[in-house]
Design a protein around this nucleic acid. Sequence first.
DNA 1: CTGAAAGCGCTTACAG
DNA 2: CTGAAAGCGCTTACAG
Lengths: 341, 341
Amino acid sequence: MPSPERRRRPSGRITLSDVARQAGVSPITASRALRGERGVAQDLVERVKQAAAAMGYVPDPAARALASQRGTQVPVLIPLLSNALFVDLVDAVHTTLLPHGYQPLIGITHYDPAEEEQLLRSFLAQRPAGLLLTGFDRTPDARRLIDTSGVPCVYLMELSNTPGVHSVGFSQQEAGQAITAHLLTSGHRRVAFVAAQLDPRTLQRAEGYRRCLRQAGLYDPKLELLSAQPSSMRLGGELLQELLQRHPDVDAVFFCNDDLAQGGLLAALRLGVDVPGRLAVAGFNDLSGSDQMLPPLTTVRTPRRAIGEAAARMLLSLMRGEVVPQPSHDLGFELVVRGSS
Amino acid sequence: MPSPERRRRPSGRITLSDVARQAGVSPITASRALRGERGVAQDLVERVKQAAAAMGYVPDPAARALASQRGTQVPVLIPLLSNALFVDLVDAVHTTLLPHGYQPLIGITHYDPAEEEQLLRSFLAQRPAGLLLTGFDRTPDARRLIDTSGVPCVYLMELSNTPGVHSVGFSQQEAGQAITAHLLTSGHRRVAFVAAQLDPRTLQRAEGYRRCLRQAGLYDPKLELLSAQPSSMRLGGELLQELLQRHPDVDAVFFCNDDLAQGGLLAALRLGVDVPGRLAVAGFNDLSGSDQMLPPLTTVRTPRRAIGEAAARMLLSLMRGEVVPQPSHDLGFELVVRGSS
DNA sequence: CTGAAAGCGCTTACAG
DNA sequence: CTGAAAGCGCTTACAG
């Protein structure tokens, strides 16, 4: 019995009403059944789900977002994509969030709090379901936006003890201290620190380096070579050369990131500097290729994939309205001692 | 004169109606003014825009998508994020699309057509404004989904001559042929091809390699070392070693990707194989670090950022309903001859 | 446990 | 050039 007046559905889309009609229930019941809301008779749930599957029904996220005042988007704000660290982080977040029906939205801040604030404004206008932000370096306005939005938020890479703040990461400072301590333990006395970009986390590692050397009575500020340029292998090579020229007595270097360290290692090879005999080299993050260097690079393995996954899971809990038992989730780090030190 | 019954707006959101009221026009006129639709008196446009700015109005993407039956999302489907090539591509797409109000959505296919089809289904249900897809290797169902959706689509990395198909890339085969020809020109006769992943574009490069060697009467299928494993520096080193063991007479290698080639170069250094004296090495893509190798890596520079940007611009035209003058946009490639060959 | 009504915030025809 | 009406496809209270 065809309906007397042919409904023209311009979109050609199968809607919730179609599914409901097919299953012989009201659209509201169909909606509840499909969303797994409890309080619907089991047989109805089955009927609705079967009808939906048979008709190939896919809910409309826009309609859902408009009606429920909450979308499925989860903006993930990171400084840049050119550091493999953040690529791994984003990849893990993606893998964790997507199966739960959430859509990660990548935002690139270029380490600029003003850019981040701008991104936050436009993302927040989209009623995101949650927020994943890198670190704690942002404008007061950005902080206010986040707070007043009421959108659940988890911070990545660094840890906070502030009540109500959720974070997954590790202590950048302790990691910097640990790798420096390793260089001291292996007998080095003139340990340099070479860094680029100079973002907040790099500076925390620098602080760990300083603390360690101060405790040993070996701190010499002249052995810090800091460049605000973006990190790269090329720059690492240049900085190593500069370091050796300025301070021929240096016997070890801690590079704040593995790309710099890899470049430094290759430069040493080119310059005929014996590593680790004449100079020990250590990096940070254990990026791809570090184990292939000549000699293989000693570094700190950071659990960025685990951080991405754990943060996404924590956010999932928050979005469900659950209370998170461990709002400051420390995933630690691991010293990886290879041939370069 | 306050309205007698206080409208409770649970969202607290400033809506188009608020702006319209403030500007003294109807919501429809405000909508048209804000979207820059022509046919609105100039003074009204100004008044509306001013009101919107003053009130900090931000349009609701969900409502807009629902009403207009077209969202602002642009799914970008790529094989994976662990190849720097695709990271650059995505970054360029992002940078180009975002200022125009479109939201790129990353989808990872893991080189699996079935996964891609699945992603396509769920993305298409979101009424995307456009689609950016990598290559042409997909299921018939996926093709049909794309066609029947009517969503504008641009294909990345490869070129197509099919009418109505829009693509931005370069000839993978010609690039493979060109780098092989370079190795021949510099006097090598036993030129190997080492590849991993074996995705469609890698196989096209293989075809270029074969064609070049066949033309020179030097093709020997035994000199092809193909691994389906994911590409990495480590694997490159292993494959180089295997190649030299099996075929000690090889005098040149073309690696299908720079990460393999970098690993191969470092393995050669470790093994004491003189490059390029005993063995010439060439890579593909000119990834970060290739210029820092020892010796620096000869490779093919691929314009992935330019491809991302050009494809995004082409899609922007299509989404505006414009006709694209050059639907198959060849951005070429560049031979970068360095010390390794 | 189920449903009729209303509404989320915008835009698409259709009038005038 | 401007607007009143209807509707996009869902879900949120509110009844029963």
